[in-house]
Nucleic acid binder design. Structure first.
Lengths: 220, 220
DNA sequence: TTTAATTTTTAAGCGTGCTTAAATCTATGG
DNA sequence: CCATAGATTTAAGCACGCTTAAAAATTAAA
């Protein structure tokens, strides 16, 4: 069994795997906002406990057990987010941090009952899919960041990354929510920033922010 | 601010104060199931942080701040218990342990919203009153353990101590729930045990167990 | 390919919260 | 009032999860 800190590592690893299914220790350190040395330490423990495959100076990957554990953490996190937002009416930009605490304090039985109470939701309030109790994640149609669309594309927002500090707050402030329709007005060569029409407002967002907002093309 | 361990100490202190409003370190140690030495250590920290009044070799008492904190923990615990039992249908004997984890992972905002969702319940599933957001606890009419009643008294169970390991499990097994009507059939001199009629079954329970079940007298 | 930059690990240290064992203090009863 | 039993504190030690600084390995660039 694993504790809070280990659970955070497993989740962070899973969420940040590269195309090869690995992550470098320093990336992990920056995601978790801790030193590289601390990561080295913990990776040895996670390896000892069978959650990761790890060799000195190499990238890490999750074992089957580690992956299952990580997906279970996502399940807990996302179900709590649905509860907080939908049942308790907690605002969009507060639920992530709150769920981050609750996810470490809930038995599987509690989570299964919560899921039932919530009527088996398939996505969380940020648009991420909720793994089922066996760790299965429903395939979603391709999800593309808005950076990947073209000028004059009409889009509907279907996901926003909740794992970036203060991003949700900012995005809420400029009027973006799930299901919001937006238009790519322009893309600036200079800094790759994007000009969006949100309602009747024209808003310039940086490439970095745009890469954390996901959408689908719609006909207009 | 306080962390999990400190929160457990504050709750345990509050729940086990003697008539003078104090508790001796060794009592606390046994309630928390840790060594006396660990208690000494922690009491110094709690004192440093302003939650308890403590002097070497003396009993401890809570400061105003400590008492407020403890009551807020009870509030969190009991509201979670209501949610788990009433909303999610989790059985009576599992909610305490689960709530014990959740109580350390919830902001005041979450708890206030939960309270509203639950329609401001006044007692938890074990019959304990739920402090309001200012720490006020509604006065309950005198609550007496069933050891204090007499032979042939007809009683209705109004509270069961949820802080004793495995007690709720046992009590559930012999058919006691909140609101259950019972009769004191006999009290044995020898070991102070009590013979109860629960439904049409005659059950002998030890003095120790009986002292954790609380009831009111009813006419028959 | 050799050097330089970057990444990773090792080492030492710190606060937390526990342990056991020994020392010390307090309370009780003879 | 004093001995002793019991409660409490001190001391040393340990696992955890972090830090910074230094050493070592890897990677990238000239």
């Amino acid at each position: 069994m694993s504790n809070i800190s280990q659970e955070d590592y497993l989740t962070a690893i899973y969420r940040n795997l590269d195309e090869a299914g690995e992550i470098k220790p320093n990336i992990l350190a920056s995601k978790l906002d801790i030193s590289n040395a601390a990561v080295t330490d913990m990776l040895r423990k996670l390896s000892r406990d069978g959650f990761v495959d790890y060799q000195k100076y190499k990238s890490v990957r999750l074992t089957n057990e580690g992956e299952l554990y990580a997906k279970n953490m996502l399940r807990r996190h996302r179900l709590w987010e649905v509860f907080l937002n939908q049942t308790l009416g907690m605002p969009w930009d507060k639920i992530h941090d709150e769920a981050e605490k609750l996810e470490h304090s809930s038995s599987d039985e509690l989570i299964n009952r919560l899921e039932k109470f919530l009527k088996y939701p398939s996505i969380d309030p940020h648009g991420y899919p909720i793994p089922d109790k066996n760790g299965k994640i429903k395939k979603t149609k391709s999800v593309k960041a808005i950076t990947e669309f073209n000028i004059n594309d009409h889009l509907i927002v279907i996901r926003v990354n909740d794992d970036v500090k203060n991003l949700i707050s900012y995005i809420t402030k400029i009027g973006i929510t799930l299901g919001k329709k937006i238009l790519i007005k322009d893309k600036l060569e200079y800094d790759s920033s994007i000009i969006l029409m949100i309602g009747n407002k024209e808003i310039n967002i940086s490439y970095k922010i745009a890469s954390n907002i996901f959408a689908e093309k719609i006909k207009r």
